[in-house]
C-alpha cells in the first residue's frame, strides 16, 4: 500500500517506489473555488522541496503549487489542463498534478499523515 503524506501548503504526495504523485487537497480546492486554469511544470525539470512547481487559478485567486519533495518531474497530468474543473471534483485522485522522482525520500518523514493533516486543517479555523 502506498503512503500518502501532506504538507502545510495543502499538497498531498502519494509515494510508490521512488516516484511520488502530487496534487492539492480537497480543502485547498474548496478554498480556491472553481478552478479555471492549471499550469504544469515541464517533464524533466528539477524541483526542490518547497519550491514553485505548478500554478492553479480560480476566477479570483491564483496560487502556486509547491513541490513537497526534491527531485525530477517524470510525468504531468494534462487532463487537468484540458479540464480544470477536475481539480474541484476529484482533487485527491484523478486530478493529480505531477509525478516526481524522489531524490531524497527522507524528506517525507517530517510530513503529516492523513490524521495529522485533518487536525492541521481543523486548527486553521
Amino acid at each position: 500500500m502506498s503512503a500518502i503524506k501532506f504538507t502545510e501548503e495543502h499538497e498531498w504526495i502519494r509515494v510508490e517506489g521512488d516516484v511520488g504523485t502530487v496534487g492539492i487537497t480537497d480543502f485547498a480546492q474548496s478554498q480556491l473555488g472553481d478552478v479555471v486554469f492549471v499550469e504544469l511544470p515541464a517533464v524533466g525539470r528539477q524541483v526542490t522541496k518547497g519550491g514553485d512547481a505548478a500554478v492553479v487559478e480560480s476566477v479570483k485567486a491564483a496560487s502556486e503549487v509547491y513541490s513537497p519533495v526534491t527531485g525530477e518531474i517524470v510525468a504531468v497530468n494534462e487532463a487537468i489542463v484540458d479540464e480544470p474543473a477536475k481539480v474541484n471534483s476529484e482533487p485527491m485522485d484523478g486530478a493529480w498534478f505531477f509525478k516526481v522522482k524522489l531524490a531524497n525520500p527522507a524528506e517525507l518523514d517530517a510530513m503529516m499523515d492523513e490524521a495529522g493533516y485533518a487536525a492541521f486543517v481543523d486548527g486553521q479555523h
Binding site: F37, K60, A61, A62
Partner: peptide, 12 residues
C-alpha cells in the same frame, strides 16, 4: 483572466 493582473497576483 484577471489572475494575470496586479490586484490578484501582486508581485507575481
Amino acid at each position: 483572466l484577471s489572475t494575470r493582473e496586479q490586484h490578484i497576483r501582486r508581485e507575481k
